Amino acid sequence: MPVKCVSQVLTNFNCKAMNYSCFIGIDLSKKTFDVSIISPEREELNYFQLPNTAAGTRRLVKRVHELCIPLSKILFCAEDMGELAIELCLASQSAGFPLALACPLSIKKSAGICRGKSDRIDAYKIACHASLHHRNLRLYSLPEPALTRLKLFITLREDLVKSKKRFSSVDTTLIESGKIADTGEHRQVTKEQLDLLDRQIKHVENCMLECLKESPLLYRNFRLLRSVKGIGLLNACLLICLTGNFTRFENHRKFACYCGVAPFEFSSGTSIRGKNRVSKLGNKQMKVYLTSAAQAAIMHDDQIKKYYKRKLEEGKHKGTVINAIRAKLVARCFAVIRRQQPFIAMLA
């Protein structure tokens, strides 16, 4: 498709008010990415497909230069697809163009009623999302290398823990089967594998600590988080990763919404659809870790313990009280980071 004359399309457009002269939506896949370039009036100016490689991103920048618009006046937007977006993110930093990585679910929910699906349609939807919500989108910047390594170690540890659970389940089965036949050799194999996994998990945890020590700011925030009773190594590391070392979220309330521990009202007119409840769209990984933190806090924090017992005596549901404690821990974590002082427990 030939490139349209941008000056004609943007005749009545106030660039100063909108900041960007056009928007580019990029639909990422493993081998290729589709590009849709639209005007602020959401008219498609151009569409093409390129390989999802370093060479492909260089060709993208070259094609965009044909628009004769400074790169700083063009907003690139793609879905946050993890490793599929790495080449695009690196190109953004090297070429200096603004890039926003949007939540795929946000794009899907804001697209309205859709009929049909193709890579070109998806790229156009992403561009429209950038056009409508560009003032609320956060521009991408490369994270610290230590933060990236820390995320990978967390993922690796979770995989090792899952493998340990599988072998533990096999060992339990062998114990029961040992009542019928000799399973000594089988159990020896599983025992060796479990011992190996224990050593690997411990090694990964040590590596996580070394990653934190590579960055003074990361390590300082980590030690502040550990001052909150209930927040251990894994909770602290995951909090640092998900918040971008506490730069992605303005306050603890927004992070509580992100984790799925903030209750919301469900009503319409005079109809009240049940009690306030949390959303199912929260980050389940962080929610599970916060549940463990809440249980630890109930055991070791006198103030939390008395709060927990008091609410149960008032007739509150156990799950509701646990969720409130999760929210309290999130608030405490953000407070110690904001004040840059360790948490000091008040008299219960």
Rank of each mutant, 00 (worst) to 15 (best):
P2V: 14
S7F: 11
I24A: 10
G25S: 08
D27T: 02
K30S: 05
P40C: 00
F48H: 12
F48Q: 12
L50Q: 08
R59A: 14
L67K: 00
L67C: 00
L67A: 03
C68Y: 12
C68N: 15
I69H: 10
L71Y: 05
L75P: 02
C77G: 08
E79L: 00
D80H: 03
S92W: 02
S94L: 13
L105R: 07
I107W: 00
I107D: 05
K108A: 15
K108V: 10
G112Y: 06
R115D: 02
A127E: 04
C128R: 10
S131I: 03
R135V: 06
E144G: 10
L147S: 14
I154K: 03
L156K: 05
K162E: 15
S163H: 15
E176G: 05
I180C: 07
R187F: 01
V189L: 11
E192V: 03
L194E: 08
D195H: 09
L196N: 03
I201W: 08
N206R: 13
C211S: 10
E214V: 04
S227M: 07
L234D: 04
C237Q: 03
I240P: 07
F249P: 10
R253T: 14
K254N: 14
Y258C: 05
C259V: 14
L281F: 09
V288C: 14
T291N: 12
I298E: 01
D302H: 12
Y308M: 04
G315V: 05
A327Q: 12
R338W: 05
R339L: 13
F343G: 06
A348P: 15
